[in-house]
């Protein structure tokens, strides 16, 4: 199976003191300076929607966001265009991109927000490629694990399918102790 259009989201740790609206300013700087590897076009601030997509730096190939979907804050990378390479490569790419954005946000707002690198989720943002079924999990598990292992540098983690509502996108949760 082909895994494309991955979303990686690292969850925040504890109670963030950061007012998410603050991130709007930072993201505008990313756009002005084109600070990310992918071109960014604009900032979408959607904080008025409860448990919504938060604040997004929108690009053509990818988006970066401080995201609040499902009521959990986290720093998110969403790959929109396709990528070459193996499935595992694409997992690593998404995770590294989200981690880089998390680092920039932590650096900018020191002490106000902590983003875990060990508690995250991966979503395949494409229901035709990856319907939310046990069969998808069976087919994708090895590649997802290989990617996560390459990102973390060890195999000491738990990767579980989120399952649930079949209308949602296929997603896995990953937790590691280190």
């Amino acid at each position: 199976m082909e895994l494309q259009h991955l979303i990686a989201k690292f969850f925040t740790v504890g109670d963030s003191k950061l007012d998410p609206a603050q991130v709007v300013n930072l993201m505008h700087r990313w756009v002005a300076k084109q600070s990310m590897p992918e071109m960014l076009v604009d900032v979408a601030e959607l904080l008025h929607v409860p448990k919504g997509p938060g604040v997004i730096a929108v690009g053509n190939d990818a988006d970066y966001a401080l995201d609040h979907t499902d009521g959990r804050w986290g720093v998110l990378y969403r790959r929109k265009s396709t990528l070459a390479g193996t499935n595992a490569d694409r997992v690593v790419q998404a995770l590294r991109s989200a981690a880089a954005a998390a680092q920039l946000i932590e650096d900018e707002f020191k002490g106000q927000i902590t983003v875990s690198r060990h508690d995250f989720e991966l979503i395949v943002n494409d229901r035709a490629l990856a319907p939310n079924t046990p069969a998808t999990f069976a087919a994708a598990k090895a590649d997802l694990e290989a990617g996560v292992k390459a990102f973390l540098g060890h195999a000491d983690f738990k990767l579980e399918a989120q399952g649930g509502d079949p209308r949602r996108r296929f997603a896995v949760s990953v937790k590691s102790a280190k």
């Binding site: 259009h5 959607l46 209308r167």
Partner: peptide, 11 residues
Amino acid sequence: AELADEYSDGI
């Protein structure tokens, strides 16, 4: 909902 997820900004 699917389209908002997969092609847009989730909204």
